[in-house]
């Protein structure tokens, strides 16, 4: 009789269940379609959609670290925006040094300059993340209120230090030669840089997915998000894992900062904290701790912002809030709530 009991059988996922899981994936295409209907002009729509994807992917890059850090250690870093700003300024400095490369018409020189800028800013923000975690976050584990306050304090100090090093004024960032201007696709004017941003964003997303799904570190991160205690009980030091994730998350924020700086062509010390508004909206929409949710949320916010900037510019930011409210009405914990075993 015990034989029947342990005979393998799997509860088949019902159709409704599968739809529940897949439904968020449909949101971005639905949003794009709704945009097409509202805008009516396909060329304008294409321009805006590429812009939206570029913006969404850049926000995803910045938000991904924040959401995984939260999932893994229940730490919310309100100072995350500081890494975005610092990354942008470091990137700007490197690009300014390499002015000879960026003003060179050769594409390869331009790209090399951008990649060096990205590498430098990721290195700086990664190390900064290490310091931030050790000095600011580590003493306030398990205490949300203090985390919010202390990381906010860290943000203030970091922004002020940017003023000390780079001065208080907004700085103009010139895009390298070959990333300036636009191309015409199906009558739509598309900035080259946006295509570049989309490409980088997609590569990063796929890379991140690969790491999370197919490497041991990735498995540990996913397992740790669900049940950190059990990861420790299996013999892994989750604190060390967390430190690595925190550094990578900070470095990604720095990368996002460089990309955003080149996108906007202007950088300020408070650009990071301004962007945090969108980052938080994205993270909440996706479900705190969920990387897939974060990705979808970022695309939604990017598309919606760009469509609304065209349709009703005054309420663009408010519309993203409305989107967040709508999603939370539908799923109170975000698109992909992270299962916590506790």
């Amino acid at each position: 009789m015990s034989e029947t009991a342990i005979r393998p059988k799997l509860v088949a996922a019902s159709a409704g269940d599968r739809l529940r899981k897949a439904a968020p994936l449909l949101l971005a295409p639905v949003m794009a379609l709704a945009g097409l209907i509202a805008i009516a002009d396909p060329a304008t729509w294409l321009t805006l959609t590429v812009a939206g994807l570029a913006m969404g992917l850049m926000i995803f890059i910045m938000a991904s670290g924040l959401t995984v850090v939260f999932g893994l250690m229940d730490v919310i870093n309100f100072g995350h925006g500081a890494f975005v700003s610092v990354g942008a300024f470091v990137g700007f400095t490197v690009l300014a040094w390499l002015a000879g490369w960026t003003e060179n018409p050769a594409v390869i020189m331009n790209l090399a300059a951008v990649f060096l800028a990205i590498l430098a800013s990721m290195a700086v923000t990664g190390v900064l993340g290490l310091a931030f975690e050790r000095v600011i976050v580590a003493p306030v584990y398990g205490h949300h209120l203090k985390q919010i306050l202390v990381t906010m304090g860290g943000l203030i100090v970091a922004q002020q230090l940017i003023h000390v090093v780079w001065g208080p004024d907004a700085i103009h960032v010139a895009r390298p030669q070959s990333l300036r201007g636009s191309v015409i696709v199906f009558d739509a004017v598309i900035e080259k840089y946006r295509l570049f941003a989309v490409a980088i964003g997609l590569v990063l997303f796929l890379g991140m997915r690969h790491v999370l799904r197919s490497t041991k570190v990735g498995l540990l991160v996913r397992a740790g998000v669900e049940n950190g205690e059990m990861v420790e009980a299996l013999g892994y030091r989750i604190r060390r894992l967390f430190l690595v994730v925190f550094m990578v998350g900070s470095a990604l924020a720095g990368l996002g900062g460089v990309m955003w700086g080149l996108y906007n062509e202007t950088i300020t010390a408070h650009m990071g904290s301004d962007l945090m508004v969108l980052v938080f909206i994205v993270v909440i929409i996706g479900g705190l701790g969920s990387i897939e949710g974060c990705f979808i949320g970022a695309l939604l916010v990017g598309l919606l912002s760009n469509y609304m900037t065209f349709l009703a510019p005054k309420v663009a930011l408010v519309s993203t809030i409305a989107l967040m409210v709508g999603v939370l009405m539908w799923r109170p914990e975000g698109l992909y709530p992270v299962v916590k075993a506790k």
Partner: peptide
């Protein structure tokens, strides 16, 4: 082996 089994359901 904890009471809640500690299985990583996402994996």
């Amino acid at each position: 082996v904890p009471e809640n089994m500690g299985v990583f359901s996402d994996l």
